[in-house]
Amino acid sequence: MARPQAFNTTEALHQAMNVFWHKGFEATSMADLLAATGLSKSSLYGAFGGKRELFVAAFDAYREARMREMRGMLDAAPAREAIERFFRKIVFDAGDGDPSRGCMSINQAVEMAPRDPEIRGRVLQDFAMIEEALTQVIERGQAEGSVGDADARHLARLLVLAFPGLQIMVRAGSDRDRLEASLEALFSMLDRDR
């Protein structure tokens, strides 16, 4: 009879996610994962499989949490305000936390997606879900009168293109004034009289 699991799988997954998020897949060693989770090698392998399986589970947990957060943010305010709040959060989060982490999906778009079809599929799915969520909130803003009447899908695609660029600017250490000016230029696309 197998022994019952003596650790919290969700917490261990969260700890592993933080390591992968900070260091990336390639730079993360099994020693890093064992130290972060507090698990023995046999417990880690037994619960998650190998390093790659643990990474995929951690990445999926990250993606699910971020999508919930994004949808909550975009649904919680008038549309224009929600869009601006969503993009400003990228800049604000950099000042409050560790800007070296950035967005894990953007990190993986660069690190693994070019050579790993499974990760590429997840990253592309993330971009598609962001586009869909932004399209819906833009359409809501158009109905409210806070967003101009340009094609909602077109605007959403432009915002999705801006999303990784802003992430990279934050991680590269761009100053707040420059980032704020970039945000204002981005938000001007939403104006009614373009």
Score class of each variant (00 low, 15 high):
Asp116Ile: 10
Glu81Lys: 03
Ser29Gln: 13
Ala162Asp: 08
Val110Pro: 01
Phe55His: 02
Arg153Met: 11
Val56Trp: 00
Pro99Asp: 02
Pro114Glu: 01
Leu39Val: 01
Gly145Met: 01
Glu81Trp: 00
Ala35Pro: 08
Glu184Trp: 06
Cys103Thr: 06
Leu13Gln: 05
Ser43Met: 14
Glu131Lys: 14
Glu111Tyr: 05
His22Val: 12
Phe163Ala: 06
Ile168Arg: 12
Trp21Lys: 02
Arg63Trp: 05
Pro164Met: 07
Asp75Ile: 00
Ala61Ile: 00
Phe55Trp: 02
Leu166His: 07
Arg157Phe: 09
Ala181Pro: 00
Ser100Thr: 09
Met189Ala: 14
Gly49Pro: 09
Glu11His: 04
Leu34Met: 08
Ala16Trp: 08
Ala79Ile: 03
Arg66Thr: 14
Arg115Cys: 01
Ala76Glu: 10
Ala152Glu: 04
Leu179Gln: 03
Ala133His: 06
Met169Glu: 13
Ala6Arg: 15
Glu11Tyr: 10
Ala172Ile: 10
Gly145Ala: 03
Leu183Lys: 08
Val19Tyr: 10
Ala65Asn: 05
Ser100Trp: 00
Pro4Leu: 13
Phe48Leu: 04
Leu190Lys: 05
Ala47Ser: 08
Arg157Gly: 11
Gly95Tyr: 13
Leu34Ala: 10
Ala172Phe: 11
Leu39Arg: 01
Ala162Tyr: 09
Arg101Glu: 03
Phe48Asp: 08
Pro78Arg: 12
Ser43Pro: 07
Gly102Tyr: 12
Ala6Asn: 15
Ala172Tyr: 09
Gln142Ile: 11
Pro117His: 01
Arg122Lys: 14
Arg88Ala: 07
Ala16Gly: 13
Ala109Arg: 13
Arg52Lys: 13
Asn18Trp: 07
Gly97Asp: 07
Ala61Cys: 01
His154Val: 05
Asp191Phe: 00
Lys51Ser: 03
His22Gln: 15
Val91Gln: 09
Ile130Arg: 14
Arg71Val: 11
Ala12Asn: 04
Ala185Asp: 11
Ala16Asp: 06
Met169Tyr: 08
Ser146Ala: 03
Ile119Gly: 01
Ala162Gly: 10
Ser42Arg: 05
Gly38Trp: 04
Ala65His: 07
Gly38Val: 03
Arg120Leu: 04
Arg178Glu: 15
Asp75Ser: 11
Ile90Ser: 02
His154Trp: 08
Arg3Phe: 02
Glu64Leu: 13
Arg157Trp: 09
Asp116Ser: 11
Gly72His: 09
Asp149Val: 09
His14Ile: 07
Arg171Met: 15
Lys23Ser: 13
Ala35Ile: 02
Leu159Trp: 06
Ala47Phe: 00
Tyr45Lys: 07
Arg176Ile: 14
Asp93Ile: 02
Ser40Val: 05
Gly102His: 07
Phe20His: 06
Ala76Pro: 01
Phe25Leu: 09
Phe92Gln: 12
Cys103Ile: 05
Ser174Cys: 14
Val160Asp: 11
Asp177Tyr: 10
Ser146Pro: 04
Gln15His: 15
Glu84Ala: 10
Phe187Met: 14
Ile83His: 11
Gly24Arg: 03
Asp177Val: 12
Gly121Tyr: 07
Glu184Gly: 06
Ile90Trp: 03
Ile90Pro: 01
Asp96Phe: 07
Arg71Gln: 09
Arg178Phe: 15
Ala133Leu: 10
Arg63Asp: 09
Ser182Cys: 14
Glu131Leu: 10
His14Phe: 12
His22Cys: 13
Leu155Cys: 03
Gly141Trp: 04
